[in-house]
Design a binder for these strands. Structure first.
Lengths: 250, 250
DNA sequence: CAATTTTATGCGTATTTATGCCACATTTCC
DNA sequence: GGAAATGTGGCATAAATACGCATAAAATTG
């Protein structure tokens, strides 16, 4: 990894989380903490961030948080989900993803050294993937839905059908132990269906408040899902039925 | 492998991945690292990429991280071009566009009441089109070039071949009365070629500075162009040869 | 077409840069 | 106050680079 690349990654993280820890960065990028420290110093000298003991802060966040400089990353629910999801991806994988905020968080949590191919029709997701230094990005084309910011239509569905992905990540809006996952948009439901068919492994990501809720259009049943990711620990009571149904809950 | 070829290959890799490593290139092309280094130096001198220790980075990568001013070069002129271009589009048209800053300005200049279908592989262009209340937007899918922020590859080319557009807008980097329009990236040149083939009418947009310049890869000849748009008035002396060649100059 | 010049490339060596490691100072937290 | 984490500066090392030079290929010239 080039020095500038590393620094770009650090800056990206700072802008994303408002703070970074040297120790974490060092672990993520797999370089010594000395190097991280030198990078932070350099970037600080250029005015790109503010160096503090143990890490660095973004400019925008600087005033508010002199007190808790060592507190952990803001553990937003969706960030937790994103991190759990990102951990499932290994080098060389073909990854198919939908759109949605949880997927965006996954994209942001990808380790910088990861080398994989990401395929999606979601424009915001593609924009995030493009920030990554090492992954290959493939966009699925078709008519663009302006509010979902995703390509939809027969063309997209056909294209996905011809893909054979290792893993597929779906941000879902509703899941229920009886009815499976459901959606409120017919075309997006179609897309997600074929994504599931085209993948070896299906991972559903959702915040816990959407568990045990329903939407009008059916996507898939519980047995079609391999992994369920929420912000809760896997042994949370609300997740119990899904564990019992044989899903790997993370 | 010829020097030009090698440098074109390097540039292409930079456009695709935002970075290249000297060691890797040297191994791939089977030339010494010295040669790669000299190439990178040369290309860097021409402003085509940014040389760093260990390899090189694309401009776009460098800009988003290292520079905080994302000012577009001679944006006012491009706005003029954008307005002229937008005026050519009528209700109901199928419009094929490349990417580039002039195209973005066109997208911004579209009258809100316009109802037309816009087709493009350029992610920034699609983002602009999505802002518009009435147009239909179609994204062409394929591998994403991280620097050009455009989808490229055989899939995209095939898709464009099957389109029959009314009009096609190309932001071009070089035009010359003898050699026609030229590009510096092979794959992008291919895309533009098929765009021209798939459209009834071909419109080239460029700032006047790029008139009478050359790039290595040929796209099309002057007779293939229907309309040429620059920021200058149509009777500017520099445009005279193009008017004489039968192009409608605006 | 031969002679000459220019250009492109690779090699060896000196130099610079990037990084990690260590000993020791400083800060933070309990 | 003291343990743990973090920062500092020096040093070692490996990788990348600059530079001079030799050689070969290509272009130019007479």
């Amino acid at each position: 990894m080039l020095k500038k690349e590393r620094q770009a990654y650090i800056l990206h993280q700072v802008n994303l989380h408002n703070k970074v820890l040297s120790s974490l960065l060092s672990h993520e990028i797999r370089v010594s903490e000395d190097t991280i420290r030198r990078d932070l110093q350099e970037l600080s000298g250029e005015g790109k961030l503010i160096k503090v003991h143990g890490g660095a802060l973004s400019h925008s966040f600087h005033e508010v948080t002199y007190s808790n400089s060592l507190s952990v990353y803001s553990q937003d629910q969706k960030k937790v989900i994103g991190e759990k999801a990102a951990a499932l991806i290994k080098d060389g994988m073909f990854v198919l993803t939908s759109g949605g905020t949880t997927i965006i968080e996954m994209a942001r949590a990808l380790p910088p050294a990861l080398r994989a191919t990401f395929i999606s029709g979601s424009i915001p997701a593609i924009l995030e993937y493009m920030q990554h230094p090492n992954i290959e990005v493939v966009m699925i084309g078709d008519r663009v839905s302006k509010n979902a910011k995703i390509t939809i239509g027969a063309e997209a569905i056909n294209k996905i059908k011809n893909i054979n992905a290792d893993i597929c990540f779906l941000g879902i809006n509703a899941i229920d132990i009886k009815r499976g996952t459901t959606e409120n948009d017919w075309e997006i439901a179609q897309l997600k269906k074929v994504m599931i068919d085209s993948s070896q492994k299906v991972v559903c990501c959702t915040i816990s408040e959407k568990i045990n809720t329903l939407q009008p259009i059916h996507i898939c049943n519980i047995p079609d899902i391999d992994v369920l990711i929420t912000e809760l620990p896997p042994d949370a009571p609300i997740l119990r039925p899904y564990v019992d149904a044989g899903i790997q809950v993370i």
